[in-house]
């Protein structure tokens, strides 16, 4: 079932709790009573069309908006992706790291194993950070430059330079193996480590890893299905323009 603007926002969240962090990134807080998606978006000055496309793409793996997609402003997508990045680095990943650290502090004979897990997770974190930084420093500015060229129908010195320095194809190629480590960590914790005394905390870390992975999958889906196709089209039309 697709999410529509006339639905109650509360029902949308009941349908898929993974959308809680998503709406939060839009600045929408829980406690919306019986307000519809439409009303909540208006109150929070969120672009309704973009919001709908996004939550639907999150909610349904096979959802692939075509015409609607073209109408979403590039700036909105980029702003959203940046918010998502920040929330990964500042909240999700940091929380997991904290949990692993407190597990390590509690540990006695398991300490060695937990230290291994912590090291591994820190390695993952720096890889993820690097990946995100590259997106924010190279990919996003490129995308915004492409958008600017299309809108103004002309090159300036600045955006020409950015445009020529990169192409979205490059991005597509480098865009898959950050998740590999995350999957390895969960496999190791499930298959190869005997859980430490505080099993509750240990389990909760594993569950967090699953959720992070799921959320990252959603995130890449937005990039792969919304952002990249849009940019490929824009690159083509720039080539036709000049």
């Amino acid at each position: 079932m697709h999410i529509k603007k006339s639905m109650k926002m509360a029902d949308v969240i009941q349908m898929n709790y993974m959308l809680i962090p998503v709406i939060h990134r839009f600045g929408i807080e829980l406690g919306f009573g019986d307000k519809t998606v439409d009303q909540v978006c208006e109150e929070n000055e969120v672009d309704l069309n973009f919001f709908l496309q996004l939550v639907n793409a999150y909610h349904d793996q096979d959802y692939f908006p075509k015409e609607e997609l073209q109408s979403i402003p590039v700036r909105e997508i980029i702003a959203y992706l940046k918010m998502t990045h920040a929330s990964y680095l500042n909240n999700t990943v940091t929380d997991i790291e904290q949990k692993i650290k407190s597990l390590e502090l509690e540990g006695n004979e398991d300490k060695k194993y937990i230290a291994l897990i912590r090291n591994f997770f820190e390695g993952y974190k720096s890889e993820l950070t690097e990946h995100i930084m590259r997106e924010e420093d190279v990919v996003f500015p490129y995308v915004l430059a492409v958008d600017e060229i299309i809108k103004s129908e002309q090159f300036t010195d600045k955006n020409k330079k950015v445009f020529e320095s990169f192409s979205i194809e490059e991005y597509e190629e480098e865009h898959d193996d950050v998740e590999e480590k995350l999957m390895d960590l969960r496999t190791i914790m499930i298959k190869y480590v005997a859980p430490p005394a505080n099993t509750n905390l240990y389990h909760s870390i594993i569950q967090d890893l699953f959720r992070l992975e799921e959320d990252l999958n959603y995130h890449s889906r937005i990039e792969d299905k919304v952002l990249i196709p849009k940019i490929i089209l824009m690159e083509k039309s720039i080539k036709n323009l000049f």
């Binding site: 291994l116 897990i117 591994f120 390695g123 590999e180 480590k181 999957m183 390895d184 960590l185 496999t187 190791i188 298959k191």
Partner: peptide, 10 residues
């Protein structure tokens, strides 16, 4: 079921 070098190291 482990792919990355750091995972194999662990």
């Amino acid at each position: 079921g482990i792919k990355s070098v750091s995972g194999l190291t662990v």
